[in-house]
Amino acid sequence: MIEVSPRGRDSASRAVADTLAAQLTALHFSAKIVRRDLAAEHLPHLDEITLPAISTKDPAEAERLKDAARQSDELIDELLESDLLVIATPMWNFGIPSALKAWIDLVVRPGRTFQYSNGGVLGLAKGKKAILVLASGGVFTEGPWRSWDFVEPYLRQILGFIGIVDVQTVRAEGMNIPLLATNAVPKANNAVLELSL
């Protein structure tokens, strides 16, 4: 479970993720839930050291840069060992927070989660499911702001790129709209109960 919001107990995405975790535990009592808090754990953004470390095809170079690739390796192993990926994130300025982008940049890696082939790209994380828990100040599932949502389409695209195409979404939306805010999390929690788990 990837959690992104720095708002702690005031976070709508975290509150709904808690409900989802409880539901998963109730349905699959032997399941192991791994929670990764990207607000507390500051992942590195790709830089002049990390980028070559995770993209080199030269074995000698890979060995030399293995320490710089260690975090990426750990995150990818965690993803590939899971059956279900949950991403709980707020929408910031119509997109994802940079902390989540840093995680994506470290796990979307050639030779590990995708590979190029004659037919294009082959995702290597197939057979997994994903649930997106999205929180937003406005309403983006309908109405005039629908086309401004760059969170769900992007996450679905990048997950599909690595082979995860079974994706469900739960939204706590309207968090900054007084008439909707008080019911946004309860409505999303009810939607969790309707997910195919």
Rank of each mutant, 00 (worst) to 15 (best):
L106H: 06
L180D: 01
G120M: 11
N93I: 08
M91A: 10
L65I: 02
I177A: 13
G127W: 14
V151A: 09
R64M: 03
V121G: 06
R70F: 04
L124A: 01
A130E: 05
M91D: 10
L134P: 03
I177M: 14
E173F: 12
Y116V: 14
D105S: 05
A88T: 05
K57H: 05
W92L: 12
G95P: 00
S72I: 03
P97M: 09
L100W: 09
L75D: 01
I104H: 13
Q168C: 14
N176G: 05
G160S: 05
D73N: 10
R156V: 13
I164D: 07
G95E: 04
A62Q: 14
F114S: 02
T169N: 08
P144S: 08
Q168P: 14
D149I: 10
N93F: 12
Y154F: 15
S117F: 00
I76L: 05
S55W: 11
A99I: 01
T141H: 13
G163Q: 01
L100M: 12
I131M: 01
L51Y: 12
E81S: 15
L80Q: 14
G120C: 12
T56P: 13
A125G: 11
D149K: 08
E78A: 09
G137I: 05
S82F: 07
G127P: 14
F94K: 00
G111D: 04
P97Y: 08
A172S: 09
